[in-house]
Amino acid sequence: MSYKHNNLMAMRQSYWDDTQSQKVKLEKQYFQQLLVEHNVFPNATLENARTLFFSLPSIIIVKGYALGFTNESVQKLIHQHIESHKAALMQNDTVKIKFRL
């Protein structure tokens, strides 16, 4: 596992483990809402949202941290990611994370 991978995984885990921040709580709900809107799940759970979040490519994680995951440019990238990996997300399968900065 590369140094870059370890840092991004730590960022993902730190974000997901945050239960205090109202912004993070709203963004987690937003991930659930996206899964419903894209017909991935009829009622997306927090665990489904976690699967989506941990599958996001590094560019989305970095931009999401900087601008917020509900920022319009980040939303566009998330929508593209969901559409590209819809079948895997529906099965809660692991989506290979692509690291590009």
Rank of each mutant, 00 (worst) to 15 (best):
L34M: 13
V24F: 11
Q33P: 00
D18A: 08
L56W: 03
R12G: 03
F53P: 08
L67K: 12
E37L: 06
T45M: 08
V24P: 10
H38S: 07
L35E: 04
F69T: 04
R50P: 00
P42R: 15
G68Q: 03
A66G: 06
T70C: 03
Q20S: 15
E47Q: 14
A10D: 13
Y15R: 03
S14E: 15
S73I: 01
A44N: 10
F31Y: 13
G64Y: 07
S58I: 10
Q29V: 13
S55H: 05
S58T: 15
E72D: 09
V24C: 10
I59L: 12
F53L: 05
E37G: 00
R12S: 11
L52R: 01
E47M: 09
V40Y: 02
Q75K: 10
Q32A: 04
N39R: 10
F41I: 04
M11R: 13
Q20L: 15
I59E: 15
Y15M: 02
D17W: 08
Q32W: 03
M11L: 15
H38I: 01
S55N: 07
V40F: 01
T51G: 07
Y30G: 04
T51I: 13
L35A: 05
T19S: 14
T51H: 10
A49Q: 03
Q22P: 15
Q32T: 05
S58V: 06
L34Y: 07
F41W: 02
K76R: 08
H38W: 05
K23I: 11
T70L: 04
H38Q: 11
R50F: 11
K25G: 10
Q75L: 01
L26R: 14
G64S: 08
N48F: 07
V24S: 07
K76H: 02
S73E: 05
N43V: 14
S55Y: 00
V62M: 09
V36F: 09
M11I: 11
S73L: 02
V74G: 03
Q32V: 00
K28V: 02
R12V: 13
L34S: 06
D18R: 11
L67T: 02
H38V: 02
K23W: 06
K63P: 04
Q20G: 12
P42T: 13
D18W: 12
Q22K: 14
V62F: 02
Q22D: 15
T70A: 03
T19G: 14
V62R: 09
Q33A: 08
P42Q: 13
R12Q: 14
F41C: 06
Q33F: 10
F69E: 00
W16R: 07
F31A: 12
V40G: 02
Y15I: 05
P42Y: 07
V24K: 12
W16N: 08
L35Y: 03
T51Q: 12
Q20V: 13
Y15N: 05
L26G: 12
N39H: 11
A49Y: 04
Q22F: 14
E37N: 09
L52T: 04
F69R: 00
S58F: 08
L46G: 03
P57I: 00
T19P: 02
L67D: 02
I61C: 05
L46Y: 07
G64L: 04
K23V: 11
N43S: 14
V74E: 00
L34W: 06
Q13V: 08
F53E: 05
G64H: 06
K23P: 00
N48M: 09
E47P: 00
T19N: 15
E27P: 09
W16G: 07
Q75D: 03
